[in-house]
Amino acid sequence: MIQPKAFLFDMNGTMIDDMFYHGLAWFDVLTNDVKANFTRAEVDKQMYGKNEEVLDRLFGKGRFSVEEVSALSVEKEKRYQAAYKPHLKLINGLDAFLKKAKAHDIAMAIGTAAISFNVDFTLDNLDIRRYFEVIVSADDVSTSKPHPETFTKCADLLKVPYLDCVVFEDAPKGVEAALNAGMKAVVITTMHPAHEFAAYPNVITCVADYTDPKLNALFQQ
Rank of each mutant, 00 (worst) to 15 (best):
L30R: 10
K100N: 06
N12C: 10
V207E: 14
L55V: 03
L179M: 14
F121E: 03
L94C: 05
H104E: 07
L58W: 12
S70K: 15
T205M: 15
P146I: 10
L30F: 15
K100D: 05
A114H: 07
L55P: 02
M47L: 04
V29Y: 08
A103R: 13
I16L: 12
A83N: 09
K61M: 07
Y80S: 03
D212S: 14
F168H: 06
I110W: 11
Q220F: 10
T39K: 08
K45D: 06
Q81V: 11
M191Y: 08
R129W: 08
G49E: 06
K214M: 12
E42K: 06
D95N: 09
V203C: 05
V175A: 12
C154A: 08
K85L: 11
A208V: 09
C165H: 03
V54I: 14
H195Y: 04
A185L: 08
E52A: 11
H192T: 02
F7K: 08
L126M: 03
Y21W: 15
S65R: 05
A109P: 14
C165V: 04
Y200E: 03
K214H: 11
N125A: 13
V207R: 11
V29M: 14
K100A: 04
D56E: 15
D120S: 12
V203D: 01
E196H: 06
A217C: 05
M47A: 02
V166H: 00
M1W: 01
D105L: 08
E67D: 15
P146W: 05
T14E: 00
F9K: 11
M108E: 05
I135R: 00
C206V: 09
D140Q: 02
P213Y: 07
F9Q: 13
R79M: 14
A199M: 02
P172R: 09
A178T: 15
D18H: 06
L98K: 06
D120M: 07
A194S: 11
E196A: 08
D10R: 03
L163M: 02
P213C: 08
V203Y: 03
M19L: 13
F97T: 04
F9N: 11
P213A: 09
C206L: 06
V34I: 12
L55C: 04
I128C: 00
L123R: 06
